[in-house]
Computed example of a mutant assay.
Amino acid sequence: MIVLKRLLFGSVLMALGASGAVAQEVLLTLTGAVADGEVKLTRADLDALEWHEIATSTSVTDGQPVFRGVLMRDILDRAQASGDTVTARALNDYVIEIPMDDFHEFDVIAALYMDGIALTPRDKGPVWIVYPRDDHSVLADIRYDMRWVWQLSALHVQ
């Protein structure tokens, strides 16, 4: 027990910078046609954007969970992204190309919460691309289901 406490205390100390503040973990990295070729976003960066909620059904959950996060187009605007396609990569190395038009045609969010609970890597987080499926009948198509990237870690814009 003492060893565990020392390990935890040591980890906390390592996370503290010279100022004593806890270092911000990068949640999402954008590369390609973005500002300076790479933009790393922390939770604080996402918190600075306008938050949205979507209540919608999914192909992997029951009912209509309420998702909370920021619009994908706002993230791309923040990164000064310009391109036609976004290649989304998950922590589990799932990769899919998503047309940039999706983010302008629909209010797609980068969800960080589902039903008020923060998403974690064990439960599709920390970031999950969520489409407003129930608001547009076209989004019930399996092509869009493939674009619901959970455990999102990176976007490459081209």
Rank of each mutant, 00 (worst) to 15 (best):
I98A: 08
N92V: 10
A35N: 14
V26A: 10
D74R: 03
V3I: 13
D107N: 15
R43T: 14
A90W: 05
A118T: 12
G20L: 09
S82C: 02
S11H: 05
D107W: 07
H104Y: 15
D101W: 00
A21W: 03
N92I: 13
W51F: 08
D141C: 03
H156P: 01
A140Y: 12
H136Q: 03
R78D: 10
D115H: 04
G32F: 04
G17I: 10
A18Q: 11
I129P: 01
V60M: 14
A35S: 15
L91Y: 03
Y131V: 06
V149E: 05
G125D: 09
L28K: 10
G37D: 02
A35C: 01
A23Y: 03
L46R: 04
W51S: 15
V60S: 12
V12K: 12
M146L: 14
L4S: 07
Q158W: 02
D123Q: 11
P99G: 10
S153P: 00
L119E: 01
P121M: 07
R43S: 15
W148T: 01
D141Y: 07
A88I: 05
V12P: 00
V70M: 08
L4M: 11
A23L: 09
L13P: 00
L152Y: 02
T61W: 09
D102F: 10
A111G: 12
S19Y: 03
L139G: 03
V138T: 11
S59L: 12
I142S: 14
T58E: 05
D123A: 07
Q64P: 01
T120A: 08
R89Y: 06
Q80Y: 03
V95W: 03
L49K: 10
L76C: 09
S57A: 11
F103N: 09
L7G: 00
I142Y: 12
P121L: 06
E25C: 01
V157W: 03
L13G: 04
A55Y: 00
Q80W: 00
V149D: 01
G10V: 07
A118V: 11
R122Q: 14
L46M: 09
S11E: 11
L46K: 01
P126G: 07
L49R: 06
D84F: 00
E105W: 10
I117Y: 05
A79N: 12
G37R: 07
